[in-house]
Design a binder for these strands. Structure first.
Length: 591
RNA sequence: UGGGGCGUCGUCAAGUGGUAAGACAUCAGGUUUUGGUCCUGACAUUCGGGGGUUCGAGUCCUCCCGCCCCAGCCA
């Protein structure tokens, strides 16, 4: 009941409140069992992370269980590649499952339950075409029309259904339908399909089946089979809940008639022994996650990949788990984000700024600091001896000594950031300009004595003098230097490629493109900026791929998981910039 | 126009009839060898709107308005 430690008791989300109540009522004998049920037809994205954190988080908080169940009932859309990636992503997020079943594991049981429904008069085989069924389903305001096959006898239906399984019918020739109510105001209840014929190989069961159960039939019954107590899904399934209940209730009712199982006494015994027999699961729905500036629908993500707008599912601009991983996000930051956004029933769009905040907060604590110059321009220290080298020992983290320190060489010629120099700086500019003095981070104070430009007016070299008395970057003679610049020794610096990522879309809401447009029209053509000529300090040379770190004053970066080669080819992804109050000032004085 | 949901600060979101939490964002200061971090302060007389019940309503009743979901042999 109480939050751990000194964290203030935050109001629990409505699902946990329901669980608390169920626990008090003794509804499941103290059991809490959830599941995360992805269909293996795409990669997981941050919307899934919300669901994962909710379902696995509930299991953790209540000492319950959470299954990872693959909802693989449509063989033409599902692939083993996705199964592997989903497992990897769930683990990376920091969760582990209690069981990892596939709905396809239950095909035999589900088939048996379908026969049970038929014997109970709750399902029938309909030979109408898909078009006919659509035409007779009615509309939102008009009831549907009963199928001419609706009143076939159970034995006739049984015979037909067995022929379906035996492969005697072609795809689409007939389906098994629930016998509910063609005039139900909820369209979901107008005799929905339970089984369809698909002569297609399944990624796990191969050619063992040519009929496959539909989602609604499969999902609730799988929950019951696994003893799930709280089946948490998103809002769009709210209309399906009565059907979920119908399937589970019909099974419960059927279980009271062992004789209906005939030669399948073994399956009856198995089902009747399940915890779900007397403690049936209930479905609860919460609002799915939306984030500004991105899309979170599998269809759209797959389109971005297939049409080549991004390099793949793990493109660092993608809101997929693997995309965020490659970008340099930590699992902790994503979990923190999911904790903060809450769980409710109102449609909502969370600002990307919150995710970025969670990221920066985590990275600020854990990222070691280095110096790297993204857009280098030469700085020559005129009074620094040609052959001299200083070696500065600089802490890897300004607030945490346990990080230790690295050694950074300093010499006469340095690289500094082009943006750190202005020929005619405005008053609020604290950096280098003619005659100005700044601090080179942890090294010396330097004063600009001049600069050179090429024919196009581009700065080619900046000249300065240093003050040897300021070694280490400090002087206690009362001199004020407002600006501190990062730098890399030209002679010692390493070349690196840096990839800066911007918004994938040109608008905050790519889900609402204007008249006659699609979200693809809103893809930002400038969302990737590759800087192949960056210079970084030598301490980074052997950094392993996947390492998070900060380039001081610039941002958080991550050695790329695919292309970075320690010691050979340095490739860094910009995970996020640092907050930049200078950029704000620039905007203000620009106006 | 049938059914199912949802409307509390720019964005999320607590609140469960007793007098509007918190976070992000924003703005204003302070500290600072990262214009980072950190710290301080400001930020909903009002809960989609109107009636009503009540000593008391964001919470209850009622009418209205707006938004989302459903007519796949997808999940």
């Amino acid at each position: 009941m109480s939050a751990k430690g000194d964290t203030p008791e935050k109001g629990k989300d409505f699902i946990r409140q329901i669980i608390d109540r169920d626990l008090e009522d003794g509804k499941y004998g103290g059991r809490v069992h959830t599941r995360f049920p992805p269909e293996p037809n795409g990669y997981l994205h941050i919307g899934h992370a919300k669901s994962i954190c909710l379902n696995f988080g509930i299991a953790r908080d209540y000492q319950g269980k959470c299954n990872l169940r693959f909802d693989d009932t449509n063989p033409v859309k599902e692939e083993i590649e996705y199964v592997d990636s989903i497992r990897e992503d769930v683990r990376w997020l920091g969760f582990d499952w209690d069981a990892n079943p596939f709905a396809s594991d239950y095909f035999e049981k589900l088939y048996c339950i379908a026969e049970l429904f038929i014997k109970m008069g709750k399902a029938y085989v309909d030979h109408q075409s898909a078009d006919e069924i659509r035409a007779t389903r009615g509309t939102l305001t008009e009831p549907g029309i009963d199928s001419p096959y609706r009143d076939r006898t159970p034995s006739e239906n049984l015979d037909q259904f067995r022929r379906m399984r035996a492969g005697e019918m072609k795809d689409g020739e007939c389906i098994l339908r629930a016998r509910i109510d063609m005039s139900a105001p909820n369209v979901m209840l107008r005799d929905p399909a339970l089984y369809r014929i698909k002569h297609a190989d399944h990624h796990r069961t191969g050619d063992a089946w040519c009929i496959y159960p539909m989602y609604d039939f499969t999902h609730g019954l799988s929950d019951a089979i696994e003893g799930i107590t709280h089946s948490v899904c998103t809002l769009e399934f709210e209309n399906n809940r009565p059907l979920y209940d119908w399937c589970v209730d019909t099974l419960m009712a059927g279980l009271k008639h062992p004789e209906l199982f005939g030669r399948h006494a073994d399956i009856y015994n198995e089902l009747a022994a399940l915890p779900g027999f007397n403690q049936r699961p209930y479905q609860f729905e919460f609002a799915r996650l939306n984030i500004t500036g991105t899309v979170l629908s599998k269809r759209k993500l797959i389109q971005l990949v297939r049409e080549g707008h991004v390099s793949g599912w793990d493109d660092p601009r993608m809101p997929t788990i693997c995309g965020f991983r490659r970008r340099g996000f930590t699992p902790e930051s994503i979990r923190d984000f999911c904790d903060r956004i809450g769980v409710a029933k109102a449609d909502s769009t969370v600002e990307y700024a919150l995710l970025e905040h969670c990221l920066r907060q985590d990275l600020n604590e854990r990222a070691p600091r280095y110096m790297g110059v993204l857009d280098p321009v030469k700085l020559v220290i005129e009074n620094y001896p040609e052959d001299q080298v200083d070696e500065f020992t600089i802490p890897l983290h300004p607030e945490d000594e346990s990080f230790g320190a690295r050694t950074v060489p300093f010499s006469r010629e340095l690289w500094i950031e082009r943006a750190d120099f202005m020929e005619e700086p405005p008053k609020k500019f604290f950096r280098l300009g003619p005659g100005r003095e700044v601090r080179l981070r942890a090294a010396y104070y330097v004063t600009c004595t001049g600069y050179e430009k090429d024919a196009e007016g581009r700065i080619t070299e900046i000249r300065a003098t240093y003050d040897p008395a300021t070694k280490g970057g400090w002087s206690d003679d009362g001199r004020k230097v407002k600006g501190t610049l990062h730098w890399v020794s030209a002679r010692h610096g390493l070349k690196a490629e840096i990839r800066n990522y911007g918004n994938l879309f040109t608008t905050d809401n790519p889900n609402a493109p204007g008249e006659g447009k699609t979200f693809i029209d809103l893809v930002n053509p400038d969302s990737l900026e590759v800087l192949p000529e960056c210079r970084v300090e030598p301490a980074i040379r052997d950094m392993p791929a996947g390492t998070n770190f900060q380039f001081e004053r610039t941002g958080y970066f991550c050695a790329d998981l695919r292309d970075h080669r320690p010691g050979e080819n340095l490739v860094f992804n910009r995970t996020a910039t640092l907050r930049d109050s200078w950029a704000k000032i620039q905007k203000q004085i620009g106006k």
